[in-house]
Computed example of a mutant assay.
Amino acid sequence: MRRADRVNAPPDGVPDGTSHGESISRLLRAWRARVDARTVPELRWAQPRPGPRLSQAHVARLTGVSEGWYRALEAGRRQDFSESFLLRVAEALRLSEAETLTLFLAVCGRRPPAEPAAPREELPAGVRALLAQQVSYPAYLSDGAWNIVAANTLMGEWFPWVLRPGANLMRWTLLHPEAREQMLDWEDSSARVYLAMLRVASNSDPANTELRSLVREILAADADCRRIWERESDVVEHRDGDVFRLRLPYHGNEEVRVTSHVLLPIQRPDLRFVFITPYDG
């Protein structure tokens, strides 16, 4: 347990009028008040036996600090509170994800440390439903390496390649012969932009071995891509709002102009939700 610090804090439950953290003080008191101390296993053998009210002393005991240190937090005093301590407070007070975020932002101005990402096999039902309900426009989901995760029916009709096993937007656009026929002004409107996107992505996530392997594959396989990569230094993060000129079998090989829209699903921010609409400009 941390040595008790000399903190001139107000009595338990009394807000500190000189503090800049009055709002988080109120929230912490409310969050503590809703926890029944009798339901906390770690306090089961505490003496004296706890009643229904979880006290500041109880929270200090649960988080491994002095009562004065926890009282300073609840009073809204500016201290060097560590992330591990704030996480223990969140656990002791049984805070939700949103409440933990509020605690961190109020106390130290940053988000809680991210937990290691768990493997994600299934799309959330809401994301899958949103994709399926796009019946007017082509739409698809891609991951950080531009693998096609899912596509709606119209996307498969416009671009049958998305239905092939292992479909990848970058690989098709930059290496497949049909892309140079279907995406008009291929080098200027597609190749240069997609390679500029790969520059950003490969520098943003150097640990992504799949992405780095994709870049090597594209540069090794195509002389035009190597030339553009070596001579140019443009960087582009996404193609939201860009206009494409297409000539697809779906449209009887007549030229069409479309706009791409890129969204990040909040349930799966590792994915891009992209849909394509007619260009009215």
Rank of each mutant, 00 (worst) to 15 (best):
V7F: 15
R26A: 12
W31V: 01
R38I: 07
R38W: 12
T39E: 14
W45C: 08
P48N: 12
P48Y: 13
P50N: 04
Q56S: 08
H58C: 05
V59N: 05
S66N: 08
E67V: 08
Y70K: 12
L73C: 00
L86F: 00
A92Q: 05
L95V: 01
T100K: 14
F104T: 03
C108L: 10
G109H: 11
R110T: 11
R111G: 06
R111Q: 12
E121R: 13
E122G: 06
V127P: 01
L131S: 05
A132K: 15
Q133L: 13
L141M: 08
G144D: 06
G144K: 03
A150F: 01
N152Y: 05
N152D: 09
T153I: 08
E157R: 15
R171K: 05
L184K: 08
D185I: 00
A191Y: 02
R192G: 06
A196E: 04
L198I: 06
A201D: 02
A207L: 13
S213V: 03
L214E: 04
A220Q: 09
D224N: 12
W229C: 01
F244T: 06
R245N: 06
L246Y: 08
H251C: 10
G252Q: 09
R257N: 04
S260T: 11
Q267K: 14
F273W: 09
V274Q: 04
P278M: 02
